[in-house]
Structure formats: structure tokens, C-alpha cells
Amino acid sequence: MFDPKTLRYDANGLIPAIAQEAATGEVLMMAWMNAASIEKTLASGRVTYWSRSRQEFWEKGATSGNQQVLVEMRLDCDRDCLLLQVEQSGPACHTGRRNCFYTAVRQGDEVEIAKPMT
């Protein structure tokens, strides 16, 4: 049986989690989780992160409706990073974009490569 306590967390008890669209492989976002948010995610099937700024749980889409349903959780080889394969409804980014990686550095310049969906 998987035990979240066996993961390697930082000094604040957090582990980075990368959300990826399960169907396409698109990288959507990165956020932080702790052992309790991992347990909530596995119990509910809805991804719950830990908000460092608010110091509280943050179920993705609870207020926006842009939920992440967990398809599979993967651990990296060092057990210090998670890959969450999800089904994302709507934008994953709080800016209204499909993913959080909408700025590229091209020939030394920052370029916006995606506009908000809404």
C-alpha cells in the first residue's frame, strides 16, 4: 500500500507536483502538495494542492469549476517530485490559459505564446 510519508519533502513538508493532461501529455502546471493533500487527492480523485500563500488546501477547480480529476499519480526516481496525470476541465492556469507555461524565451526575448481561453 502506498504511504505518502515515504516521499521526500522539502524543509516545509512540501513536494512539487506537475500536472499533465493524461490524454495528450500536455504539461499544464506545477504546484505544491504535502502528505495530507496527497491523501485527500487519492481519497477523492480530485487534485488537492497546498497553497503556500494562503497556508491552506486548494482543491483545483473548487471555485472556478476548472477541475482536475486524477487519472494516475507517478513518483520520480528520487521520490521528491510527483507527476499527476489528470483530466483537466477548462483552463488550468488562473490567468484563463490552458496551461501556465504561456511565456517562452526566444532569441533572448520573452514572448507570449498563448492567449487566455476565455
Rank of each mutant, 00 (worst) to 15 (best):
M1V: 05
D3Q: 04
P4N: 00
T6R: 04
T6Y: 01
L7S: 01
L7V: 02
R8G: 01
R8Y: 05
A11E: 14
G13K: 01
G13Y: 00
P16I: 08
A22L: 08
V27D: 06
A31P: 09
N34L: 04
A35F: 01
A35M: 00
S37A: 11
I38N: 01
L42R: 10
A43H: 08
T48N: 09
T48G: 04
T48L: 02
Y49W: 02
R52L: 08
S53E: 07
Q55K: 15
E56F: 01
F57C: 01
E59N: 00
E59P: 00
K60F: 00
K60G: 00
G61E: 02
T63M: 02
S64C: 05
S64P: 04
G65R: 02
N66S: 11
Q67M: 11
V69G: 06
R74Y: 09
D76S: 10
C77K: 04
D78I: 05
D78T: 06
D78L: 11
R79P: 10
C81R: 06
Q85M: 15
V86H: 14
Q88W: 13
C93Y: 01
C93T: 02
T95V: 11
R98D: 13
Y102V: 12
Y102A: 13
R106L: 15
Q107E: 15
Q107I: 07
E110Y: 10
V111W: 11
I113S: 09
T118Y: 07
